[in-house]
């Protein structure tokens, strides 16, 4: 789906077009789910958060003002849903990267191990840095878009991504130096 038809869909859904909204959910469910998975690091929780987010979307799509990209707005909604969900469950996110990985048998095990360590390191980052990394690196948002999603300044995002990269790399250096 290209940008233009996406926008048209969102506008139609906003105005109360049932079919458009259905197509919208059909399309964005995957996006939301994938993002939720990365955000909380736990596929089981992500499924519930996604469900909540879809319901919220139905209620609040009218509030989308079109000033920012729809996805930036959507990610913000998902993060809020996720936070609410964990609050309602009375617990904190429990990242379990094992639930995220599809089994890739063809790739080298050494690479897999490395990937695993990187992802584990990701979930040890402070929340703001983790969110910034996921939005910018994984979801491919611009720093500006990510700033809208997380409700902070663009420079904050840049700094957070920088910090996160440094921290993840540092963890490896540490491990290597200890042998």
């Amino acid at each position: 789906m290209d940008k233009k038809s996406e926008d048209a869909l969102v506008t139609a859904a906003k105005s109360g077009d049932r079919d458009a909204f259905e197509r919208l959910i059909n399309h964005y469910y995957d996006v939301i789910f994938k993002f939720a998975c990365k955000w909380c690091g736990n596929a089981n929780d992500a499924e519930d958060i996604t469900q909540d987010a879809c319901i919220k979307l139905a209620r609040f799509i009218g509030k989308y003002d079109g000033k920012s990209a729809f996805t930036s707005w959507l990610y913000r909604l998902v993060i809020n849903c996720g936070k609410d969900w964990y609050k309602s469950q009375n617990r904190h996110p429990t990242p379990n990267p094992d639930t995220l990985e599809r089994v890739k048998t063809e790739s080298k095990s050494e690479d897999q191990l490395y990937a695993k360590q990187v992802i584990n390191a990701l979930y040890q980052l402070p929340e703001g840095e983790k969110d910034a990394v996921i939005l910018v690196l994984s979801e491919g948002l611009s720093h500006k878009e990510a700033a809208i999603t997380l409700g902070c300044k663009e420079s904050t995002i840049s700094w957070r991504v920088h910090e996160a990269r440094k921290k993840i790399s540092a963890q490896f250096k540490e491990e290597q130096s200890y042998g």
Binding site: Y29, T50, C54
Partner: peptide, 18 residues
């Protein structure tokens, strides 16, 4: 980090959410 794997989408869960 760019290619964090996510599990396959459960079509039933999707249908339910929809």
């Amino acid at each position: 980090l760019k290619n964090i794997d996510t599990p396959v989408i459960d079509t039933n869960a999707k249908k339910r959410a929809l």
